[in-house]
Design a protein around this nucleic acid. Structure first.
Lengths: 207, 207
DNA sequence: GCATGTGAAAATCTTCACAGCA
DNA sequence: TGCTGTGAAGATTTTCACATGC
């Protein structure tokens, strides 16, 4: 195998594999074939094999893949083999939902701080985290927090991003419905629910 | 121009264009060039022109595109030129956030019903919508609701999907962290926040 | 001059077919 | 026989270059 860069589309699929493989591991599976995985995920077996082949030969012919080895390898590729501390800004409806979201833990994320600018919310606790004033964002520098989650209204998103970047964050999960500008070093992934919903009618059958 | 199918990737970008064009329209812009749009969106000008060229020539050379015509055309392509009624199932943290989310209105979505299985929540009102028991989902048949939003825990997602499909829904926005099986006619778009977050460390610079 | 629209080239991603190995 | 791993073919998407029109 040539060592090529792993395709972005493969990277997009890796967390999906990881999620289901973790499930299989907990059920006691030792090995799993691309065909079995395919049935679960709705991804073609050859696509799965191609994806896995990007990072070396892990399967045993006639048997399948070693589930736990695969999990370790995917975690290593995605750099999910260490705990990542994250901070959330904007504890409104969405922010609260994200704070309570159980899905983060399994990938090794730990939300260690939450900020808001509403005096009524400051000091309150959600999930053992005390909400602090946004002016305290710079304190993240001392906490080795590299990931920021932005769940503030659109108008405040850019300044929030700026504050997070200044505090040393290099990865941002942005829930604001707009693009934010950051230095090249910083990676932003934007999640916009409305954009996904807006595609739905196009794919729905005509009545 | 050959009448080809519009590429899926173009469809994915159309809602983004629509969002920003709507903003420009409200600011009084009559025309806009691909270059101006490019600056806002972070998408290359030639990509933008290629996308727009899929559905006919709309631009004026030397001037740019007619903002309002473009908006109308994109809405037509995405079938967003009519109001779409939607129903939400699962009024927990995430469900409440989605109900309160302002982003849906601008694309013409109207959440007309919400369901939960928790007796404490039934009868409560959120955003003028009274929460009903999940057993009432079949009543959607009479309301011409074609879109379902699933924000229930993983275990309940498949049965929720089944109930929605039986009630006539043909498009589902699924927030559950698993795949749901539906008839081919039904389109599902799955949003999984954790999957997006899981990609972030890979793209972040090494410390 | 300026900005669109489009064929052609390049890059990327998916599908296939089959050799190779337990 | 059953399943992996991979080169090659096919499909899709992005980028480019430039002719065309106001």
């Amino acid at each position: 195998m040539n060592y090529r860069k792993i395709p972005d589309e493969t990277i997009r699929r890796l967390p999906i594999y990881l999620r289901d493989l973790t499930g299989f591991s907990q059920q006691g599976y030792k090995n799993i074939s691309s065909k079995e995985l395919s049935g679960h995920l709705g991804i073609n077996p050859w696509q799965i094999r191609k994806d896995f082949s990007c990072f070396g030969a892990f399967g045993t012919c006639g048997v399948g893949y070693d589930v736990d080895k695969l999990i370790q390898q995917i975690k290593k590729i995605l750099k999910l083999d260490t705990i990542h501390k994250a901070a959330l800004v904007g504890v409104g409806n969405l922010g609260s939902a994200v704070l309570a979201y159980p899905g983060f833990v399994m990938y090794g994320f730990d939300i260690v701080a939450a900020f808001d600018n509403d005096p009524k919310k400051i000091g309150k606790k959600i999930n053992k985290i005390t909400i602090e004033d946004v002016s305290k964002i710079p304190s993240l520098k001392n906490k080795d927090v590299r990931i920021g989650i932005i769940t503030v209204p659109r108008q405040a998103s850019q300044q929030t991003a700026d504050a997070l970047v200044s505090a040393g964050v290099t990865g941002i999960l942005n829930f604001s419905p707009c693009r934010i500008k950051v230095p090249k070093k910083v990676k932003v992934i934007t999640i916009n629910i409305a954009l996904d919903l807006a595609r739905l009618p196009y794919y729905m059958p005509a009545r």
